[in-house]
Design a binder for these strands. Structure first.
Length: 190
DNA sequence: GGGCCGATTAGG
DNA sequence: CTAATCGGCCCG
């Protein structure tokens, strides 16, 4: 596709909230599957009790990896969740990818998800990792130059809606969730 | 070592 | 509303 702006490391050397907002509308994929990012959340390494940096491993991840690196972790013992590492500006942290609009490899997504309806393929942080085939094997990978990964910014702008983050108890009042306005593929409507 | 909890999801 | 399911942290 032409007209797409390639995303480089500089993209992730900004504030996590800026990155989270700017990722809305970007194309994200692995292997033969891809989708448009329609929902994200920002997490701050410092001053955000919902961020994983209360763990030693997460703090070491932040300090030892490059901006844009994939931080993938197992949640509730069974679901993989995908984040981009954001660092280089005053505030560091992660952007959680929470939902995609399916674009490529939809038959494969349906098989992996054992669901038919488009809205059930990638409308949640653990659903989309299952649909794309993302697992703990991708912990520490870099989608900016890693084999099989796709991340680019198509031309045009999106109306973005802001709301509180989902599924957390600490610092739940931070308005750090970003959604594509009116999109039917998000996890929870704004 | 034991207990508890989580950035979730699917099914009753 | 709840089970599923497991790694990390805290306590002792």
């Amino acid at each position: 596709m032409s007209g797409n702006t390639p995303i480089g490391i500089e993209f992730f050397q900004r504030d996590p909230l800026i990155c989270a907002r700017e990722l809305i509308g970007c194309t994200f994929g692995l292997g033969d599957t891809a989708g448009k990012i329609v929902e994200t959340e920002a997490y701050a390494a410092v001053g955000d009790r919902a961020c994983h940096t209360w763990k030693r491993a997460a703090r070491e991840f932040v300090s030892s990896h490059a901006p844009g690196t994939a931080y993938v972790y197992l949640n509730y013992g069974m679901h993989w969740l995908f984040n981009f590492l954001v660092k280089g500006a005053k505030r560091e942290g992660f952007v959680l990818i929470r939902a995609l609009e399916p674009l490529e490899g939809i038959p494969l997504m349906r098989r992996r998800r054992t669901r038919e309806r488009l809205q059930e393929l990638c409308s949640g942080p653990a659903k989309l990792t299952q649909a794309l085939g993302i697992t703990g094997d991708h912990y520490g990978c870099n989608p900016l130059n890693g084999k099989g990964w796709l991340l680019s910014k198509p031309p045009g702008d999106h109306e973005v809606v802001v709301s509180n983050r989902i599924g957390i108890t600490l610092d739940a009042e931070y308005p750090w969730r970003f959604l594509s306005k009116g999109c039917p593929f998000v996890s929870v409507p704004a």
